[in-house]
Amino acid sequence: MDALKSAGRALIRSPSLAKQSWGGGGRHRKLPENWTDTRETLLEGMLFSLKYLGMTLVEQPKGEELSAAAIKRIVATAKASGKKLQKVTLKVSPRGIILTDNLTNQLIENVSIYRISYCTADKMHDKVFAYIAQSQHNQSLECHAFLCTKRKMAQAVTLTVAQAFKVAFEFWQVSKEEKEKRDKASQEGGDVLGARQDCTPPLKSLVATGNLLDLEETAKAPLSTVSANTTNMDEVPRPQALSGSSVVWELDDGLDEAFSRLAQSRTNPQVLDTGLTAQDMHYAQCLSPVDWDKPDSSGTEQDDLFSF
């Protein structure tokens, strides 16, 4: 819950932080000083300027060897085509990944977070970031790969997607708890209302004896509580940590079903599988986004697919 609360507080303090972009060759504004600060901008989305290598189908939802083989196929196909790589912007948030063309600003792909089953910074092609997700059109699994400016960037994108998945799962947990509370309150309110109706004398007997209905007592009954809980029953509950912020979080049926399955089948359902080692994760978390744009010590960066 700490990640969720800190993310909400950060967004309320400075929503404009989320509009910064990394990996864009110096076009961005001043960047936060450390990885923790940038992680807090996830709610509205972190932007990464990358190059799209392509996509291939895979048979399993996750796995280092599986993704490595898929990336190898994608890279080989991209090299064989001889075409310049498409420059894209990857927007990562707890909602998922939005992929747009840098030149036309046209939407290429919009992947809900619950469809993503794996992401990684490839070991062999260490400047490549990739994720595996279920197609929104059918049940097939797709591996999408992107060329980053350097290994640090690939690791940073991988960690960002993993963190977005974690925050999304926490949102789901909060929403589920809130819905259970509202359902319980609604049920209790309905029981109270039913009890009051059972003990209320029939209207005919009131008229016969000349008694008047006590409207004041009726007004004191917990009807307002019942209506408050039943009027918006169809509205999706939102985490309290975000009250007053500009973010509107809505959970669709697909996300609810997917996270429910994860909660039942996995020990740590909030953790998205990645190909990063503990050492890689520690190294990337210690980086400032400013470091992502620094040239690798191995030599001059080449803006070309064939540089790796």
Score class of each variant (00 low, 15 high):
residue 46 M to K: 04
residue 105 N to T: 01
residue 124 M to I: 05
residue 261 R to K: 00
residue 81 S to Q: 10
residue 168 A to K: 01
residue 172 W to Y: 01
residue 58 V to M: 13
residue 240 Q to Y: 10
residue 139 Q to H: 14
residue 89 T to C: 12
residue 102 N to F: 12
residue 217 E to V: 04
residue 39 R to I: 08
residue 126 D to K: 05
residue 136 Q to Y: 06
residue 276 L to K: 07
residue 133 A to H: 13
residue 170 E to W: 10
residue 196 R to P: 13
residue 116 I to G: 10
residue 10 A to C: 14
residue 224 S to K: 02
residue 185 A to Y: 08
residue 164 A to Q: 01
residue 286 C to Y: 14
residue 131 Y to T: 07
residue 292 W to M: 04
residue 31 L to T: 15
residue 94 P to V: 12
residue 221 A to Y: 08
residue 164 A to W: 11
residue 88 V to H: 03
residue 2 D to F: 07
residue 50 L to Q: 04
residue 11 L to D: 04
residue 248 V to K: 01
residue 90 L to E: 14
residue 195 A to L: 05
residue 274 T to P: 02
residue 59 E to I: 11
residue 24 G to M: 08
residue 241 A to M: 00
residue 22 W to Y: 09
residue 225 T to V: 08
residue 174 V to I: 00
residue 210 G to W: 10
residue 156 A to F: 11
residue 170 E to S: 07
residue 235 E to S: 06
residue 252 D to Q: 07
residue 196 R to Q: 08
residue 282 H to S: 06
residue 118 Y to F: 13
residue 74 I to E: 11
residue 283 Y to T: 07
residue 285 Q to L: 11
residue 74 I to P: 08
residue 46 M to A: 09
residue 81 S to Y: 01
residue 24 G to P: 09
residue 146 F to C: 13
residue 211 N to T: 06
residue 247 V to M: 06
residue 230 T to W: 04
residue 7 A to P: 08
residue 109 E to I: 02
residue 208 A to N: 08
residue 281 M to Y: 07
residue 29 R to D: 06
residue 46 M to Q: 11
residue 58 V to C: 10
residue 304 D to E: 15
residue 99 L to N: 08
residue 106 Q to D: 10
residue 84 K to P: 02
residue 240 Q to R: 11
residue 243 S to E: 09
residue 221 A to M: 06
residue 163 Q to R: 05
residue 291 D to R: 14
residue 300 T to P: 13
residue 305 L to N: 09
residue 172 W to K: 01
residue 256 D to W: 00
residue 185 A to S: 10
residue 255 L to G: 14
residue 104 T to D: 05
residue 140 S to K: 15
residue 8 G to C: 03
residue 180 E to R: 02
residue 221 A to P: 04
residue 185 A to F: 01
residue 157 V to P: 01
residue 286 C to R: 08
residue 134 Q to Y: 12
residue 2 D to Y: 11
residue 47 L to Y: 09
residue 209 T to C: 03
residue 37 D to V: 12
residue 13 R to V: 11
residue 234 D to H: 03
residue 139 Q to T: 07
residue 122 D to V: 14
residue 117 S to P: 11
residue 83 K to N: 15
residue 288 S to M: 06
residue 8 G to H: 08
residue 116 I to C: 06
residue 156 A to G: 01
residue 305 L to C: 08
residue 17 L to W: 04
residue 60 Q to F: 14
residue 100 T to A: 14
residue 255 L to P: 03
residue 33 E to V: 10
residue 136 Q to P: 15
residue 296 D to T: 07
residue 299 G to V: 02
residue 145 A to V: 11
residue 93 S to Q: 09
residue 243 S to Y: 04
residue 157 V to R: 00
residue 251 L to K: 01
residue 273 D to H: 11
residue 27 R to I: 09
residue 129 F to I: 09
residue 71 I to T: 09
residue 136 Q to F: 05
residue 189 G to D: 04
residue 306 F to E: 01
residue 213 L to M: 15
residue 119 C to S: 08
residue 33 E to G: 06
residue 214 D to P: 08
residue 240 Q to L: 11
residue 116 I to V: 09
residue 106 Q to A: 04
residue 42 L to T: 12
residue 129 F to E: 15
residue 171 F to S: 03
residue 44 E to L: 15
residue 171 F to E: 00
residue 28 H to I: 15
residue 291 D to F: 01
residue 129 F to C: 01
residue 222 P to M: 12
residue 57 L to Y: 10
residue 107 L to I: 14
residue 65 E to S: 14
residue 101 D to P: 15
residue 115 R to D: 05
residue 258 A to E: 09
residue 298 S to W: 05
residue 111 V to L: 14
residue 95 R to A: 00
residue 128 V to F: 14
residue 95 R to I: 03
residue 293 D to I: 00
residue 273 D to K: 06
residue 183 D to E: 12
residue 294 K to H: 04
residue 155 Q to H: 15
residue 209 T to Y: 05
residue 96 G to K: 11
residue 54 G to Y: 05
residue 31 L to D: 03
residue 260 S to W: 03
residue 245 S to T: 00
residue 255 L to I: 08
residue 40 E to N: 15
residue 28 H to M: 15
residue 52 Y to I: 07
residue 72 K to N: 14
residue 16 S to V: 03
residue 265 S to M: 00
residue 187 Q to C: 07
residue 153 M to F: 06
residue 158 T to L: 02
residue 274 T to S: 05
residue 243 S to V: 09
residue 43 L to M: 14
residue 170 E to Y: 10
residue 61 P to A: 09
residue 122 D to I: 13
residue 235 E to A: 05
residue 182 R to T: 15
residue 107 L to D: 11
residue 286 C to T: 14
residue 41 T to D: 01
residue 264 Q to P: 01
residue 278 A to W: 10
residue 6 S to G: 15
residue 303 D to N: 05
residue 155 Q to E: 08
residue 213 L to N: 00
residue 84 K to M: 13
residue 96 G to S: 04
residue 301 E to V: 05
residue 7 A to V: 12
residue 277 T to K: 04
residue 253 D to L: 06
residue 49 S to Y: 07
residue 130 A to R: 08
residue 139 Q to M: 15
residue 261 R to A: 02
residue 4 L to P: 02
residue 195 A to E: 08
residue 138 N to Q: 12
residue 24 G to Q: 04
residue 233 M to I: 14
residue 275 G to T: 08
residue 56 T to H: 07
residue 74 I to W: 12
residue 26 G to C: 12
residue 48 F to K: 13
residue 128 V to C: 11
residue 163 Q to G: 00
residue 267 T to C: 06
residue 254 G to V: 10
residue 70 A to G: 15
residue 18 A to V: 14
residue 178 E to S: 15
residue 247 V to A: 02
residue 246 S to D: 02
residue 144 H to C: 11
residue 285 Q to M: 07
residue 219 A to P: 10
residue 22 W to H: 13
residue 297 S to N: 08
residue 119 C to W: 00
residue 11 L to S: 15
residue 191 D to Q: 09
residue 254 G to E: 09
residue 223 L to I: 11
residue 295 P to A: 09
residue 196 R to D: 09
residue 152 K to S: 10
residue 183 D to K: 11
residue 257 E to I: 02
residue 123 K to Y: 12
residue 152 K to D: 08
residue 49 S to L: 12
residue 305 L to P: 03
residue 174 V to Q: 00
residue 234 D to C: 02
residue 145 A to D: 15
residue 298 S to F: 09
residue 90 L to A: 13
residue 134 Q to K: 15
residue 242 L to K: 00
residue 89 T to W: 12
residue 242 L to P: 14
residue 173 Q to E: 02
residue 12 I to P: 04
residue 288 S to Q: 05
residue 241 A to L: 03
residue 39 R to Y: 15
residue 185 A to T: 11
residue 267 T to M: 08
residue 5 K to E: 08
residue 71 I to C: 09
residue 131 Y to N: 07
residue 147 L to F: 09
residue 164 A to T: 10
residue 100 T to F: 08
residue 211 N to D: 07
residue 139 Q to G: 14
residue 253 D to E: 05
residue 282 H to M: 08
residue 202 P to V: 06
residue 67 S to L: 10
residue 206 L to I: 09
residue 72 K to Y: 15
residue 190 G to W: 14
residue 179 K to C: 11
residue 300 T to G: 00
residue 300 T to R: 01
residue 125 H to W: 03
residue 145 A to T: 15
residue 110 N to R: 03
residue 264 Q to T: 04
residue 94 P to K: 07
residue 236 V to G: 12
residue 226 V to C: 09
residue 209 T to D: 01
residue 187 Q to D: 03
residue 181 K to N: 14
residue 137 H to K: 14
residue 305 L to E: 09
residue 78 A to R: 02
residue 7 A to T: 09
residue 255 L to E: 06
residue 289 P to K: 07
residue 109 E to D: 11
residue 285 Q to K: 01
residue 120 T to Q: 05
residue 105 N to L: 02
residue 152 K to A: 12
residue 91 K to L: 11
residue 235 E to G: 10
residue 43 L to S: 13
residue 17 L to Y: 13
residue 121 A to G: 11
residue 146 F to L: 11
residue 199 C to V: 03
residue 150 K to G: 15
residue 129 F to D: 11
residue 115 R to F: 02
residue 11 L to P: 14
residue 16 S to A: 08
residue 216 E to A: 09
residue 146 F to N: 03
residue 174 V to P: 03
residue 82 G to E: 14
residue 157 V to Q: 06
residue 125 H to T: 09
residue 134 Q to G: 12
residue 165 F to Y: 13
residue 113 I to N: 00
residue 48 F to Q: 03
residue 241 A to D: 11
residue 228 A to H: 03
residue 9 R to Y: 07
residue 56 T to K: 08
residue 159 L to P: 02
residue 31 L to A: 01
residue 219 A to W: 05
residue 114 Y to M: 00
residue 34 N to A: 13
residue 117 S to M: 12
residue 292 W to D: 03
residue 187 Q to K: 07
residue 224 S to P: 05
residue 304 D to T: 08
residue 94 P to H: 04
residue 174 V to L: 00
residue 206 L to H: 05
residue 145 A to M: 05
residue 72 K to G: 06
residue 121 A to P: 02
residue 3 A to W: 04
residue 97 I to Q: 07
residue 125 H to K: 05
residue 155 Q to I: 05
residue 38 T to Q: 09
residue 280 D to N: 14
residue 207 V to L: 12
residue 93 S to K: 14
residue 136 Q to W: 12
residue 161 V to G: 01
residue 101 D to A: 10
residue 128 V to S: 13
residue 121 A to K: 08
residue 289 P to Q: 04
residue 27 R to F: 01
residue 130 A to F: 01
residue 263 A to T: 10
residue 206 L to S: 08
residue 96 G to T: 11
residue 221 A to T: 00
residue 303 D to H: 10
residue 70 A to Y: 04
residue 61 P to F: 03
residue 203 L to Q: 02
residue 40 E to L: 09
residue 42 L to H: 12
residue 125 H to R: 07
residue 148 C to P: 00
residue 213 L to T: 05
residue 121 A to D: 10
residue 248 V to P: 00
residue 89 T to D: 14
residue 109 E to M: 09
residue 240 Q to D: 03
residue 150 K to A: 02
residue 176 K to S: 15
residue 214 D to C: 07
residue 244 G to A: 05
residue 205 S to W: 04
residue 232 N to P: 06
residue 215 L to K: 09
residue 11 L to A: 03
residue 35 W to R: 15
residue 118 Y to P: 15
residue 298 S to Y: 13
residue 25 G to D: 14
residue 151 R to M: 02
